[in-house]
């Protein structure tokens, strides 16, 4: 798994490429913590290159949501591929997180 971070319109875009599983989850959590600490609590997880996510990966998303909200920001997910959508549905997490079509659109107008 590979994580890259860049900023778009004041939001941190965290792009996750590859398989987001228990081994990668701590790194994603860390990337989110770092962005919050750097003063960008508005975070988009760009999943366009995410091949797979397991429940530990979802746990990292929820952990990230918690830390961004505590900093009065938000965590949003964008460009969700079918494989990830299936896991979101399976765990009902699609009832919590809205998917945005692209990282750029995630914080549009806000």
């Amino acid at each position: 798994m590979n994580i890259t971070v860049h900023t778009v319109n004041g939001a941190a875009v965290v792009a996750v490429a590859g398989r987001l599983t228990a081994t990668g989850a701590p790194r994603l959590r860390q990337a989110v913590e770092d962005a919050v600490a750097a003063g960008t609590p508005r975070i988009v997880i760009d999943m366009s290159d995410t091949e797979f996510i397991d429940s530990s990966g979802l746990g990292a998303l929820i952990g990230g949501l918690k830390s961004t909200r505590l900093a009065d920001g938000d965590l949003r997910i964008a460009a969700v591929p079918e494989a990830v959508r299936r896991v979101l549905k399976l765990t009902n997490l699609d009832r919590v997180l809205r998917e945005y079509p692209s990282a750029e659109a995630a914080f549009d107008g806000q």
């Binding site: 228990a22 397991d54 429940s55 979802l58 746990g59 929820i62 997490l93």
Partner: peptide, 9 residues
């Protein structure tokens, strides 16, 4: 692990 985490989520 994945089953347990799923339970948590």
């Amino acid at each position: 692990r994945d089953a347990l985490m799923q339970l948590g989520i």
